[in-house]
Design a protein around this nucleic acid. Sequence first.
DNA 1: AACCTGACTTCGG
DNA 2: TCCGAAGCCAGGT
Length: 106
Amino acid sequence: MALSELTQRIVNTIRSVPFGYVVTYGYVARLAGNPRAARQVSRVLHSLTRKEGLPWHRVINSQGRISLKPMQGYEEQRQHLENEGIAFDASGKVDLDRFLWRPDEF
DNA sequence: AACCTGACTTCGG
DNA sequence: TCCGAAGCCAGGT
């Protein structure tokens, strides 16, 4: 079945996040055209990561934290990010002022 | 078509 | 900082 315009744009957006940077669900939604589609972003990650070869680990929540729960991907995602040079503070938070990817257009 | 669901976000208290 | 409630989106049933 055909993906909705929004879903397609979300996929493209996630795919363009460069190595060493992160984006938040809501931010991706905004870049894709609908600021309120954050939940759709998580859905996309859930269902299209493999098929589209998305850098899923670069998407975290608005607080700069990893949304996955321990033993359900948290460790793996954190490892991926640290491998790209992204730092976590003592409370497991990423400094978005420093690592959030900001496209030129925004 | 109605109802449920989720790797979300924002707002209050 | 932590928690609950409400708002939102599209795909699956």
